[in-house]
Design a protein around this nucleic acid. Structure first.
Lengths: 225, 225
DNA sequence: GCCACCTTGTGATCATTTTCTCTAAGTCTG
DNA sequence: CAGACTTAGAGAAAATGATCACAAGGTGGC
């Protein structure tokens, strides 16, 4: 049951919208005003029919014979993805990865502002990373309320990840990006996405064994042909 | 056209095998000898029927009424994923993220050994990160040959990623894990997997807008129900 | 204003993946 | 050793996603 717009957008489409968005962004300021599904498909590394189907879920604002107005399309995708608003984020677990994420330019650029850092290690508390002071993980609830955190990034060891997730959920966080290796159980209404480096490498390892047999780019979960 | 074993394993199954593998690993040393598809499903956050179907692609080595022998299953999955061998990896682009990846314990633990680092920034060349000396990216071809690199991790800015990929492919690398935001075009027979943090956040943002409307864990690409 | 040309949007088809259901095979208890 | 119980495996059905093919709509040249 969709709310915002009247249509229900397939999960597979949602996961491609950010791709299109990025490609379109790269094409602003080039003088181009419109872009065809063919061209967009090529740049995003997908099939043109797929592009048209995907975009048709947002409404039909292409012009036959011409293509899509880049600015307008950007605006529509941004609206659909909620990129027109600000999503304050907290990063929990400031190890190598957490620190790298905190410093990562590109979060803020697109509306995702890292507003707080937390860690369980008391020797880290008080240190500054990316201009933010690391706070104790015990304060997580307070932090989330204070900063109106909507998205949390978990970069702790796996052993702590479920506890952290529970606390976050308790504090009202509805979206979690999980870099720890295990699975998180969360109540309905909370979205979790997982990024697991070991998993990715293992999948590559599989295709490495098989390569030269027709298993090529199809190893790609999100991208190229 | 499968080679190794006679069966063709669906892509979706391949991407779940690492999950099962991790869960099984966590259950060694607990005294348990076997595990049921139900239990495995619960721990991996998937459906039990799916677990059975997935494992049936590897062969049928469960025992009805009992479950799967944990050790044997681990061995079979490892064999299928190629985790029984060593995959020397190179990381290209030693910024915050690249350095974090270099330091990340968990690659090596499972057979993925980072054997070289490369960066285009000459002021970084010669520095040591995670006990490895950063080498100039211009030496990439030499590095790959010298270290017999099979898997490359690209953590450069997007602008350089395609060039780096081309060089890697030229040097015979058949698997690439890409952290840069754009799409890579590579010839058939080369596998690319993409990890894009901005994309993940944007997908979460979408479900954040919709949450409470029945869009819950289904935002999850890999995991929970 | 008409005609050749482009490109979108969509219905139809095909492929993949998930889920359901049931049977066959084994264990464990008494 | 018999019967109740547990669980894998597989076939079928349902859901989801990808691709195809083409008609409808719009542009620009003349």
């Amino acid at each position: 049951m969709p709310t915002e717009s009247g249509r229900r957008i397939p999960e597979a489409t949602v996961s491609r919208l950010p791709q299109y968005y990025r490609v379109l962004l790269e094409n602003t300021g080039t003088g181009l005003v419109t872009i065809s599904s063919d061209r967009l498909a090529e740049l995003a590394g997908v099939n043109a029919a797929k592009v048209r189907k995907d975009l048709s879920y947002l409404g039909s604002f292409g012009t036959r014979g011409v293509g899509y107005d880049i600015e307008y399309l950007l605006h529509e995708i941004a609206r659909e993805l909620g990129l027109t608003q600000d999503w304050p984020c907290v990063i929990v677990g400031i190890g190598n990865l957490g620190a790298a994420l905190a410093n990562y330019r590109g979060f803020g650029a697109r509306g995702f502002r890292v507003v707080a850092l937390a860690d369980a290690d008391s020797s880290k508390v008080g240190q500054k990373v990316a201009d933010l002071e690391i706070e104790p993980v015990t304060e997580l609830t307070t932090i989330c309320e204070r900063e109106k955190v909507t998205i949390a990034i978990i970069a702790t060891p796996q052993s702590e990840s479920q506890n952290v997730a529970d606390t976050l959920v308790e504090a009202g966080v509805k979206s979690i990006l999980n870099f720890a290796s295990g699975m998180l159980s969360v109540p309905d209404g909370v979205a979790v996405r997982k990024v697991d480096l070991a998993t990715e490498l293992q999948i590559l390892s599989f295709y490495q064994l098989r390569n030269g047999n027709g298993n090529n780019g199809s190893a790609n979960g999100t991208g190229p042909s």
